[in-house]
Computed example of a mutant assay.
Amino acid sequence: MNPTANLADHRPRLRATAPGLFCLAIALLLTAFAWDKAEDVYWLSRRGEVVTATVLSEDHPRRGDPYITVGYTTSDGSKLTNTTSDYDHAEVGKPLQIRYDRGYPDRLQAADRPLSYRDVYLQGAAAAFLFLLAAALLIGRRRA
C-alpha cells in the first residue's frame, strides 16, 4: 500500500464543471460592474461639478437602459456632448442639471440622482455569493 496515494484521496481537487465556471464568470462580471460604479460615485462625489446642460435627444433602445444625449459647457469653457443613463426625467430641448467629473468630463449623471453606493453593495454581495457558490461547485473531495 502506498501512503502518499491515501493522502491524495483526501485533498481537494478542481472539478471544472460548467455550473461552477458559469458562476465564476458571472461573479467576475458583477465585480467589474461594481468596481466601475464605485469609481463613478467616488469621483463624482469628490470632483463633481453641477452645470446646466441641454437635453439633445432621448433614446430607448430595445435592450438596455434608456439614455439621453446632453450638451454642456465645462468650467474651463469646453463644450461637450455626452450620453448618460443616470437620470430620472428629461425632455428634449429642455435644460437639465448634471453633475460631471472635472478630471474626466465624460463621467456624468443627472444632478437630481443621488450619489449612492447602494448598487455597488448589492452587486458586491451578489458577486461574493457567486464566488462562494463557484468555489463550492469547483472544489470537491474525492469519494473513495
Rank of each mutant, 00 (worst) to 15 (best):
T73Y: 00
L21W: 13
T73C: 02
A128P: 01
R107A: 10
I98N: 13
D36V: 02
G20I: 14
V41I: 15
T81M: 01
S116Q: 03
K94C: 03
V92L: 00
A135H: 07
Q109S: 04
P66G: 12
Y72W: 10
T74F: 07
R141Y: 09
V70L: 15
L96P: 06
F129N: 01
D59Q: 15
Y104L: 02
L21P: 07
E58S: 03
R99F: 08
L122M: 10
T17W: 00
D9T: 05
A126G: 11
K94D: 12
L132N: 04
L122V: 12
T17M: 02
K79S: 13
Y42V: 01
K37M: 13
T74A: 12
L30A: 14
D88L: 09
H60C: 03
S85A: 14
I139Q: 05
T69S: 15
H89F: 15
R13Y: 15
V55D: 01
L28W: 13
A90M: 03
R13T: 11
F131P: 05
D65V: 11
Y87G: 01
P66H: 05
R62Q: 15
D59T: 15
L44Q: 05
Y72P: 02
R46H: 09
A18N: 10
R46N: 10
F22G: 14
T17Y: 00
R46A: 11
A111K: 04
D9I: 02
R99A: 13
R118E: 08
L130A: 03
G64S: 14
T54V: 08
D59V: 15
R102Q: 14
R118W: 10
L132Q: 07
D119F: 02
H60Q: 08
A110K: 05
L44P: 04
A135W: 14
V120W: 08
D112M: 01
L30I: 08
L133C: 08
Y104R: 06
A136Y: 01
R118F: 14
T81S: 14
R13P: 02
L133V: 11
S85Y: 10
D112R: 02
R13G: 09
K37H: 15
P19Y: 02
G124L: 09
C23I: 09
D36S: 15
Y117H: 04
R63Q: 13
P114C: 00
D40N: 06
T81K: 09
P19L: 06
P95R: 09
G77C: 05
S78C: 07
N82G: 05
K79Y: 13
Q97I: 04
T69W: 11
